[in-house]
Design a protein around this nucleic acid. Sequence first.
RNA 1: GGCUCCUUAGCUCAACUGAAUAGAGCAUCUGACUACGGAUCAGAAGGUUGCAGGUUUGAAUCCUGCAGGAGUCACCA
Length: 595
Amino acid sequence: MNIVTSLTQAISQALLALYGIEADDKSIVLQDTRKDFKGDYTLVVFPYVKQARKAPEAVAQEIGSHVKEHLPLVSGFNVIKGFLNFEVADSYWLKFVAEKGNDTAFGLRQADVTSAPVVVEYSSPNTNKPLHLGHIRNNLLGWSVSQLLAAAGANVKKVNLVNDRGIHICKSMLAWMRYGGGETPESSGMKGDHLVGKYYVEFDKHYKEEVKQLMESGVEEEQAKKEAPLMVEAQSMLKRWEEGDKEVRALWEKMNGWVYAGFDETYHRLGVGFDKVYYESQTYLLGKELVNKGLDMGVLFRKEDGSVWCDLTGDGLDQKLLLRRDGTSVYMTQDLGTALLRHNDFGAERLIYVVGNEQDYHFKVLKLILGKLGFSWADKVYHLSYGMVELPNGKMKSREGTVVDADDLIDEMEQTAADMSREHGKNDELTEEEQRHLHHILALGALKYFILKVDPTKNMLFNPAESIDFNGNTGPFIQYTHARIRSIVRKAAESSEVGAWSSELEMNEKERAVVKILHALPESIAAAAAVFSPAMVANYAYELAKAFNSFYQDTPILREENAQVRAFRVSLCAMVANALKNTMNILGIEVPERM
RNA sequence: GGCUCCUUAGCUCAACUGAAUAGAGCAUCUGACUACGGAUCAGAAGGUUGCAGGUUUGAAUCCUGCAGGAGUCACCA
């Protein structure tokens, strides 16, 4: 049995026997003993001193004795103020490595495919411009949270909802017709999404010019923005699209096709994917029946002008529009519809939306309305809200050209990785193809780790000029550690002298540190999954890699003369390599055999 | 202006549900290569956790107020 559960139970029994305190296992919290003190797990006894009517030191002393007496795995304990530090016998740790050392899936739970799916929506791009750094954070988060939940045993379905219709698409289409001269991805050599994005910018340029001219001729700004010929034409194009105009639809399909080809390439490079892709052009009319249902139920109401609203003033919010007076729906209406669609499509238990924090309000409202409409799963809707990626000179603004393009960024990272690699010059035996693959892995390892190690909810700063480090708390550091370990394990396998070891061995401090971190892997993954935080996984992997390096630096492994100790250390190596691989895989980061 | 979130070392970030002396990396300084892989390791220096109160045996963490920053308050998506 796991030592933590054993300890918890022993403590619970001690509390009952000594003081008659009935503490359930959940209220007993053990924490890792701080490095500077002797021991492995610490119990804070302050919560019990009142009922025990004794000084903290005395209480700790008594609990310690009682536990040690009843739990042989506890080899000793010490008391400092109100902190009771338990020491766990080496034999326990040795047994743990012996049992789990060869388990390549250690720490990962088998996903239960028979349980109700958890649907994770992420990415959700617009098809009028290419992906940028903000999308990268979204995609990486979506993918790794999916991996994380799966590692914790959930049946995860990843979905993407592509925003493929609307006025913004028409802008690109119109500009392409006007100024494009029939340019295609083939003729221009541009990636499809970049080409379409170029015409979106083009539209904005000419449109601003028109607005400026109108204002110079005395038209108010508001009015000028509405009346500029380009805008009027884009609006009419949207109308024709909605009416199913063949010409408009054909162009729409053609240009969206270019964009999808471009997106697929970027998704592939990022290593993300989906189980199902929804298109807004097919779902944007959903939700109206729900509104009718809501009207019947009396949770929604109609105003005199015919528009339909939900009154959320009772929840401390405003009234929210759901149908315009002309009967057309808004964003919220669609999202209500797609939530239901998704729930029905998968029989989903939970819906998770990976969407930026600028939509916090929207999802708060979405959840509330779903609840009012009587859906029991409304409280299982979770908005995984993430902060913006900021640049040293401020926010990214597409219109001002201060965006970091996803493809460009990946290109640069790969170049940097190639340069670094060449500098270290250890990969001469690799073919060119293998080297390219390695550079790709390292580049994405650096990028992904850099982004995922930050708490999702927080805004983060990205400095493209300084690019991303390959030293310190980085993806490549962990990748490097893995590659080194695998190298040792390979050599050990060649020598074939690796045998068993006895539980009588004594571990040194650094070995113990590594083993303890390994031991915590399952709990760490479970804890990270509970709060949807890949960052916690990243920090775990780093801590493990660091502890291993520290151990590795001054402890002989293959040169160790004692065969049993050698065997133990090799097993430990294999286990660390495995744990690094599994945790990095959750982050979507590949880990090389050599680098 | 209302509501929500944020503020930790020079910089970028940690600290799970309140617990011991708030931890890493980068940058700076000092040491360690006849290498089981130095993309490493050992160490130094760097902090009144934005400010002021409060609750608690104990607060970066919870409460109140203030300052600074971001987001949002569309018959846009």
